Structure formats: C-alpha cells, structure tokens
Simulated scan of single mutants.
Amino acid sequence: MSLKEEYKKDLLEDLRYSVSKFDTQVLTIASGAIAISLTFIKEIVPIKYAVAEWLFLLALMCFIICLTLGFISHYLSIKKISESIDKIDENRIEEITSEEWIPKINLGMVIILPLGILLLTSYSLINMKHYKEISNKPKRTITIEGTKIHKNGK
C-alpha cells in the first residue's frame, strides 16, 4: 500500500470516527439534559413551586449552545476530511491544511457544558431547599360555613 493510499485510509477512518462521535455526543448531551430537567420539574420540585427559573433557562441555553457548537464542529470536521480526501485523489497533498475553527469551538464546548451543568445543579439545589421550606410550613385551617379550607401559612 502506498503512502497516499495509507493516508487516505487514515482520513476515511477519521471521518467515520467523527461521524460516530457526533451522533454519540448529540444523543448523550441532549437526552441527559432533557431527562434531568424534565425529571426534576415533574418528580422533585413541580414547576409551580419553582424559584430562580432564570437559572434553569440559562442552563438549557448552555446545553442548546453546546449542542449547536458540537454540531458545527463535527460538520466542519467532516467537511475538512472530505476536502482532504479529494485533494489526495487529485495529488494535491501539499494543499491539505487543518481546520482552524474546530479547536476554538471545542474549547467553547469545554467551557459551556460545565457551566450549564453548574447552572442546572444550582437551580436544582435552590429549588429543593425552597420546596422543602414551603412544604414544612404549618397549614392553617379556616372554617367557612361548615367547610374546612386549608391554606398555607406565611
């Protein structure tokens, strides 16, 4: 096998790997973020009792931005590998360059993903504490014409 063929084979393997990682990353982050947020709102602290919703919204925005950046990064990677394969086929190996945006985008994801996790964790902790506080407040009973009405005390 010639050096050219071996290099092209390596690029094709890189292309397969990038596509595979893209699918895994998108599914893992998206389903994890959605599952955690929906479970929290449904099972732990219902949305009607939630406070600091802005933390939740910022966390979701971080996850969406991270997913978008991941998508862009993998798209650029796939495009660059495909262009490199074409240049090899045309005997223009010296024209092959690396993609300059991918490292910057990946750095953005490295920062944004943990920030989203931190925001979602903060939101969860604040709301669990708040929900516990309002759940432990004594209830007052008011009787109006023989009917008992329970009202949370403040």
Rank of each mutant, 00 (worst) to 15 (best):
M1K: 07
M1H: 09
S2N: 15
L3W: 02
L3K: 11
L3V: 10
K4S: 11
E5P: 08
E6T: 01
K9Q: 10
L12N: 01
L12G: 00
L12E: 11
E13C: 07
E13M: 13
D14W: 02
L15W: 02
L15S: 01
Y17I: 07
S20G: 06
S20C: 04
S20L: 03
K21E: 12
F22Y: 02
F22R: 06
D23K: 13
D23M: 12
D23S: 04
T24Q: 09
Q25W: 07
V26W: 04
V26C: 01
V26E: 01
T28Q: 12
T28N: 10
T28M: 14
I29T: 08
I29V: 14
I29F: 10
S31E: 03
G32H: 01
A33H: 08
A33L: 04
A35F: 13
A35W: 08
S37L: 08
L38C: 05
L38T: 11
L38A: 08
F40W: 02
E43P: 00
I44L: 15
I44K: 04
V45S: 09
P46Y: 00
P46C: 01
K48I: 09
K48A: 04
K48Q: 13
Y49W: 03
A50G: 05
V51A: 12
V51T: 14
E53M: 15
W54N: 09
W54H: 08
W54T: 04
W54M: 11
W54G: 06
F56E: 07
L57F: 09
A59H: 00
M61G: 10
M61R: 12
C62N: 00
F63Q: 00
F63L: 06
I64R: 11
C66S: 15
L67I: 05
L67K: 00
T68N: 14
G70Y: 12
F71Y: 13
I72L: 13
I81Y: 09
E83R: 11
S84D: 06
I88T: 04
I88L: 11
D89L: 02
N91W: 14
R92V: 03
I93G: 08
I93F: 15
I96E: 13
E99I: 05
E99W: 12
I102L: 03
K104V: 08
N106M: 11
N106P: 01
V110W: 03
I112P: 00
L115M: 06
G116D: 03
L118P: 03
L118T: 08
L120Y: 05
L125W: 02
I126A: 13
N127T: 03
M128D: 03
H130S: 07
H130C: 05
Y131F: 14
Y131I: 08
Y131D: 14
Y131H: 15
E133S: 06
I134C: 10
S135H: 03
S135R: 09
K137F: 06
K137S: 10
P138W: 02
K139E: 09
K139V: 07
R140H: 11
T141F: 11
T143P: 01
I144M: 07
K148L: 10
I149G: 07
H150M: 15
H150G: 04
H150Q: 15
K151Q: 13
K151F: 04
N152R: 09
N152L: 14
G153I: 07
K154V: 10
